[in-house]
């Protein structure tokens, strides 16, 4: 029994870490009012660039750094298109997913089939750093002026605008920051969780990260629970195969998400704490 608890917990941490980074990034972007469905694209770009650099320099941490840059660059494109050009955020995110999957595969051909000998352990100081990051991001979001500004940009952009806050700039920064975190999440996959590079290796985890952000009601601390819970459930869906048929088990993490959301929901009112201006482009002077 003890072994089950400990092991499931560790597996939850391992798969939860990359999901947590990406989910935290999405939370910041969405809190500022911008939905970014391109998490999968940003993660895979992060995974590729991290692997490429780690393979070349034998330094996985350096890989994570460049992954942050790659994710941020991809997010910048999304920010420009959705904030400056005010294009539809959902479609732009889908486009970013395609572009990321495509570009990383084309650029990554050379690195396919190469082993990575210097890897990052999957549960390590980095895991605790991730937890710390979540706490920090939670604190910033709820207890600092920056946090108020970010949240207001997503709740009442017109109101903060009249207070002299540059809504577009805030959103830009939040989206880019979110992209950097998603990039690190992807990089963690290719240098720690499964140290190798194959095109499409994120295989839908970006979408799970988006789900976790919403599941967590856009709260960084709850995202910790969401990410690790998903990781643990995902692992359990294989552990339990000895007793339960595999197909319903594989459905479990997804069905579980819906059930939990339904059970914890407030009746009526806004969907669990969604930023009021989420998905809406902000135009000065427009209400």
């Amino acid at each position: 029994m003890e072994e089950w608890v400990v092991n499931t917990f560790i597996r939850g941490l391992a798969l939860g870490t990359p999901l947590l980074w990406a989910a935290l990034g999405e939370i910041y972007a969405e809190r500022s009012g911008v939905v970014n469905l391109g998490v999968e694209g940003m993660m895979i770009l992060g995974a590729f660039s991290a692997f490429a650099l780690a393979q070349t320099t034998a330094n996985p941490l350096l890989g994570l750094l460049i992954a942050a840059g790659a994710g941020a660059a991809a997010a910048l494109l999304h920010a420009f298109v959705t904030i400056t050009l005010r294009a539809n955020q959902y479609v732009s995110g889908l486009a970013l997913t395609m572009l990321g999957l495509g570009l990383s595969a084309l650029l990554g051909r050379r690195w396919e089939g190469l082993p990575l000998l210097d890897t990052l352990p999957e549960v390590s100081a980095f895991t605790y750093l991730s937890l710390l990051l979540a706490v920090l991001l939670w604190f910033v979001l709820y207890h600092t002026r920056w946090g108020i500004v970010i949240r207001s940009a997503g709740e009442a952009p017109a109101a903060v605008d009249t207070l002299g806050v540059n809504v577009a700039l805030v959103r830009y920064l939040a989206v880019i920051f979110g992209g950097a975190l998603a990039g690190v999440g992807g990089g963690f996959l290719s240098v720690a969780y499964r140290p190798s590079w194959t095109e499409g290796m994120t295989n839908g985890l970006g979408w799970i990260a988006i789900a976790i952000a919403i599941f967590a009601s856009w709260d960084p601390l709850r995202a910790v629970a969401g990410a690790f819970l998903f990781g643990a459930l995902f692992h359990l869906s294989f552990r339990l195969q000895t007793w339960v048929a595999p197909e319903p088990l594989q459905m479990m993490p997804f069905a579980f998400t819906i059930v939990v959301l339904a059970l914890t929901a407030r009746r009526g009112g806004r969907a669990q704490g969604a930023p009021a201006a989420l998905g809406l482009p902000y135009v000065r002077g427009e209400r």
Binding site: A14, L15, L189, R194, M201, N203, L205, H235, S237, F238
Partner: peptide, 13 residues
């Protein structure tokens, strides 16, 4: 046929 995350967690299990 290809899913590193699943392969990984199945192995861990």
């Amino acid at each position: 046929w290809f899913d590193p995350a699943k392969a990984k967690e199945a192995t861990e299990a």
